[in-house]
Amino acid sequence: MPKIIGFPKVRFNLFDWNTNQETYIILYYQYRKGERLKFSTGWKIKPSDWDGRKQRARQSKRFEDSVYLNSHLNK
């Protein structure tokens, strides 16, 4: 098991920003400078429904599951 130095960082990003189709939300876990793990959350979303700055789904009528999805990403 690698030694954790500092505070681990967790980020969410999309697998493919250059599509109009749904794409997977990827979790990046940085546990040491320059070393990270990448996991698929299993959730899919269109890039137009994703807020890259907040790393969460945008709340809109187009994507009604945004509150549910964001609550799972916060766990």
Rank of each mutant, 00 (worst) to 15 (best):
F15G: 02
K3Q: 14
R58W: 03
R32C: 12
F15H: 14
L73M: 07
S40V: 03
L37H: 08
S66H: 04
Y68V: 10
Y28T: 12
T23P: 01
D16S: 15
Y31L: 08
T23L: 01
K33L: 07
R53E: 03
K33M: 06
T19K: 06
N18C: 12
R56V: 11
I45S: 08
T41H: 03
F63M: 11
S71Y: 05
K61S: 12
T23Q: 01
S71P: 04
D16H: 05
I5Q: 13
S66P: 03
Q21P: 00
T19R: 02
P8E: 13
K46V: 04
S48D: 13
I4Y: 11
N18R: 14
N18V: 10
D51N: 15
R32K: 15
N70R: 04
K75I: 08
N18L: 14
D16M: 06
Q59K: 04
Q30S: 15
R62Y: 09
Y24W: 02
G6E: 13
K54L: 15
T19E: 02
R56D: 06
V10G: 01
A57S: 10
D65I: 05
E22G: 00
G42P: 01
D51R: 05
K46Q: 07
W43C: 06
R62K: 06
T19H: 03
N13R: 15
P2C: 04
W50T: 03
P8R: 14
V67Y: 02
F39T: 01
K61H: 14
M1Q: 05
K54E: 11
I45D: 09
Y31D: 08
I4R: 07
F12I: 10
G6H: 09
F7A: 02
G42R: 06
D51E: 01
D65F: 08
S60D: 09
Y31N: 00
Y31S: 04
R32T: 12
R11M: 05
E22D: 05
G34F: 07
Y68S: 09
A57G: 04
P47K: 10
N70G: 03
F15D: 15
K54P: 06
L27E: 13
R56N: 05
R53T: 07
R58C: 07
K44R: 15
W17T: 04
N70Q: 00
N20R: 12
V10Q: 09
R36Y: 07
T23C: 00
Y29D: 04
P8C: 12
G6A: 10
K61I: 11
N74R: 12
G34P: 08
P2V: 03
E35R: 11
N20D: 15
V10R: 15
Y29K: 02
D65W: 00
L27C: 13
R32G: 02
I45M: 07
E22K: 09
K75Q: 10
K75G: 14
F63N: 10
Q59D: 11
T23G: 00
P2W: 06
D65T: 06
R62I: 09
